[in-house]
């Protein structure tokens, strides 16, 4: 068995909205092992980004309450002081952000931005840092690294900038990478390039990766294990192959059915009834997905939905998956069938 790198235990991240705290991440437990890519997937408002920010300590400290544990290298990151946390961030954990157009400081040259984490975490001379930086640039697929070193962010294309952002995350050989929608802001062909680059780097470096995304295509291409989130909770955890071959939770199944590229020709897409509740209006009792599959009788849901191991290493929340079906009188009745089965 591989060693766990990061253990998130019962994490609850609550935001202060007009004086009251509402949990955006509501009791989430996830373990990431060495050399494993764990994808966290869900639609906006499911809490996946709040989870990433909590792990990195990047939330707004005044308006956020954190409970639970984020165990990394023998310490709970949630209880570390700012200066202790700064010894971990950028060194053992690197982060890749969504929008490469805004993630870099517009007034500093690329070289310095990649060297910056080395300033704090590695004892290197200026020339050693530069050498390492040039090597990193080559490793993320930038060929004219000498020139890019001296350039400012605005002089680079979006794809190049995202490569730089990855180089920054890798600067101090982290054991864990947190990638928050790393390809969402990119063009299709650039997205493919960045996905391939990340796969390649992961193969070489054997880091654990938490990949946060809304795109099931990206999940299928990159992940080893998948965590599906809905309304602040984990609803399904499975190996990537199992998830796409045998999705269990009604939400996962609905999601897969609403992707156009899964459907041949002009079939109707599946539409999930209703909308994702906001964290203030969320009914936290019972199955949170129940209001959106109203044709499933109430007794099929659990009162306090638990995670069940429905198949080896395949976990699903609530018992409603057992009897869930797509009603025939509704559009999108045609169930998504895994292409490889």
């Amino acid at each position: 068995m591989k060693n766990p790198v990061l253990e998130i235990k019962d994490l609850r991240t609550s935001f202060n909205i007009k004086g009251d705290y509402y949990a955006a991440v509501d009791g989430v437990s996830i373990t990431v092992h060495e050399n494993e890519v764990v994808a966290i997937v869900g639609e906006s408002g499911c809490g996946k980004s709040a989870l990433a920010l909590s792990v990195m300590g990047l939330h707004d400290r005044k308006a956020t309450k954190l409970e639970g544990q984020v165990n990394f290298a023998g310490q709970n990151l949630l209880t570390l002081t700012r200066s202790r946390l700064d010894k971990v961030r950028g060194k053992d954990i690197g982060m890749i952000f969504q929008d490469p157009m805004t993630a870099l400081n517009p007034l500093a040259i690329i070289g310095r931005q990649i060297e910056e984490p080395m300033d704090y975490h590695m004892k290197l001379s200026a020339s050693e840092k530069k050498k390492r930086t040039l090597e990193l640039l080559r490793r993320v697929g930038i060929k004219n690294e000498q020139r890019v070193y001296e350039q400012y962010p605005h002089e680079l294309s979006g794809g190049m900038r995202q490569r730089v952002v990855i180089a920054i995350a890798l600067a101090c050989d982290p054991v864990l990478l947190l990638a928050d929608e790393p390809t969402t802001a990119l063009d299709v062909t650039i997205q493919a390039q960045i996905m391939d680059l990340m796969k390649e780097l992961q193969n070489q470096m054997k880091t654990g990766i938490i990949l946060i995304t809304h795109d099931l295509g990206v999940v299928a291409e990159m992940a080893d294990r998948v965590v599906v989130m809905y309304a602040g909770e984990v609803v399904e955890i499975a190996d990537v192959k199992d998830l796409f071959e045998n999705p269990l939770h009604p939400y996962t199944r609905s999601l897969l059915n609403s992707i156009p590229s899964n459907m041949e020709g002009k079939e109707k897409l599946h539409v999930i009834d209703g909308i994702v509740p906001s964290i203030q209006n969320l009914d936290r009792k019972g199955c949170r997905f129940a209001p959106r599959i109203a044709w499933i009788p109430e007794e099929d849901h659990e009162e306090i939905p638990e995670m069940h191991e429905a198949a080896p290493n395949h976990f699903v929340r609530c018992s409603c998956y057992k009897t869930f079906y797509f009603p025939e009188d509704r559009v999108g009745e045609k169930e998504y069938v895994a292409t490889n089965s």
Partner: peptide, 16 residues
């Protein structure tokens, strides 16, 4: 303060 590049800086472990 809330711009992305500042988040990047914090995620690098840059002291406040």
């Amino acid at each position: 303060k809330i711009k992305d590049y500042v988040k990047t800086a914090r995620s690098k472990g840059v002291p406040e």
